[in-house]
Structures are given as C-alpha cells and as structure tokens.
C-alpha cells in the first residue's frame, strides 16, 4: 500500500531533542521518546535526533527542549540564537515544545543564577524573572481553558505534571496561557496560570515527562508536525490503558494533596517543616 495516507510511505518524521547535554537534567528527553513511539506505533517512520550542543541544530519536524541548570541554560539560549535553525523552523510552523528552562528560553528574557537577564529566542511573548519566595516544587494540575485544541475542537484533558523551578513567568498579549492552575504554582505570576502557547509553540514548567503524563498533548503536537509538512494529520487511536492508569493515579494523588494543602503550593509547607532543601541555595530558574 503506497497511498498518500499510508504513514509508512511518508517521509521519515524527525524529532529533534535539543541539546540534551545542556537541557537534559530533568528527564524531559522522555518527551522525544513519547512522540517518536506514538508515531511509530501508528506506522510512521521516525528518527529521534539527540542534537548535542557544539554542532549545528538539524532540521526536523518537531523540536523538544527540556529543563537544565542555570549555566547550561544561558549557553543553550545563546547557541540557539546564534545557530538560527530553531527560530527559522518555528517560523515555518514546525511545532516546538519547551519545558522549564527550555520554556523560559523560548521567551524574550530569563534570569541566570545571579539574576542577570539574558536574551531568549523570542518565539513566545513571555518574560521570566526570579521568584522571591520558595522554589515551586510539587505536583501540578491545570485545566486547558484557553489552551490549544485538537481539530475536533474539544478541550484536552487536564494537564498533569511535576514542577521544580524558581522562575516567575509573565505571559504577554502575543501568547496565551497554556492552562489554568488548579493545584500547584505554575508560572507563579499571581494569575494562577501555567505555561504559554502561540501558533505551534508550546511552553510549560511541567516535568513527568509532561508528554508521558498527557499523551493527548503529545498527539496534538504530532498532528501539528504532520500538518506543517502538508501530510494528512489524522492520527489513528492507540491503546492508552497504561497512560490512563498513570493519569488516574496521579490525579487522585494530586487531589488528595490539593485538599490537604488548600491553595498553597505543596513545596512551601514542605520547606517550612524543614525537611525540604537541606542546603540554602538561591532561587534559580530551571
């Protein structure tokens, strides 16, 4: 079968994991694995390029950026700006997912460990500053009120993940929040929102990895990637029993915590009891 809708007849789908040596601290490389496998299981030919820093960023159909430490984050941003490929590809409508430090560098500005501002890629209308309070650490549950929607127009199931960051991100008029926070901190700006998106660029603070916890968001990104290169973007359903079991377990755990901790971020109660971070460290993004 070689019809235009036969996935295996289509050109290979290239998923690029951006600089795992700099932005690979928090397990977010798993997002690339999830995207690739979900395409493979549907018959697409896929390759995952782990694009290390120091080489030109390859052209791909989908880009994933993960969380990292402060110094490497600054280096990643300046290398990506210099390289130019990511901005060019995003300009062509290729989807980009940025997580935590990788989310922050998609915006206009982000701080380093000493709170000096650094320029980001400007693919999202967001700016990040250092938070004054405790680092936001814990489970997050958020609702995709104004978030991106799949072709059928239905809202995606609630966003679940784990946050661990010291940055506060403000979403400007050129982007929309990804989701409204039900439990946890999220962007931390007081408006109780989490992440941001515009066009096919999506940013979030959530680890987990976020696409393993939210496979419908993964499928939305895959659909966009196919759309961006003019392929048929309808994806066959998969048996997501195990992913659903994980979601159910996490949602139940988050709800229990949410009730116990009211609207307070989980991490604060934690650190007050003195069993949180054993060493005093400056709040840092990432």
């Amino acid at each position: 079968m070689t019809g235009a809708t036969d996935p295996s007849a289509q050109p290979e789908l290239v998923v690029v994991v951006v600089y795992p040596d700099l932005l690979g601290t928090y397990g977010d490389g798993g997002n690339g694995i999830v995207l690739a496998q979900r395409a493979r299981w549907r018959g697409y030919r896929v390759s995952v390029r782990e694009a290390r820093s120091g080489s030109p960023l390859p052209e791909g159909d989908l880009y994933c950026l993960g969380g990292g430490e402060d110094g490497p984050q600054v280096r990643a941003a300046s290398l990506l700006i210099e390289d130019g490929t990511l901005a060019r590809q995003a300009g062509r409508g290729v989807p980009v997912l940025g997580v935590c430090a990788g989310f922050q560098i998609l915006g206009h500005r982000f701080p380093d460990a000493d709170d000096r501002p650094h320029r980001g890629l400007g693919l999202l209308d967001i700016t990040t500053r250092k938070g004054r309070g405790a680092r936001a650490v814990g489970e997050v549950l958020a609702r995709f009120d104004r978030g991106p929607r799949p072709a059928d127009g239905r809202r995606l199931p609630d966003l679940t993940g784990f946050e661990n960051h010291g940055g506060v991100t403000t979403v400007g008029p050129g982007a929309a929040p990804l989701a409204r926070v039900l439990t946890g901190v999220g962007n931390g700006g007081g408006d109780r929102v989490e992440g941001a998106w515009h066009g096919r660029v999506v940013g979030t603070y959530l680890h987990g990895p976020v696409l393993a916890r939210n496979v419908q968001l993964a499928d939305l990104l895959l659909g966009w990637a196919l759309e961006a290169r003019g392929s048929a973007s309808r994806l066959a359903p998969l048996d997501d029993t195990e992913e659903e079991a994980l979601r159910a377990e996490r949602l139940a755990a988050t709800e229990v915590r949410g009730l116990r901790g009211a609207a307070r971020p989980f991490s604060r109660g934690f650190q007050r009891r003195g069993i949180g971070n054993p060493i005093s460290r400056p709040a840092q993004p990432g």
Partner: peptide, 9 residues
C-alpha cells in the same frame, strides 16, 4: 525524590 521523570533517563 518526588519527581519520577528520571525514569526516562
């Protein structure tokens, strides 16, 4: 550690 993301590493 409360975050299981490391399983993907």
């Amino acid at each position: 550690g409360l975050d299981t993301s490391w399983l993907w590493d």
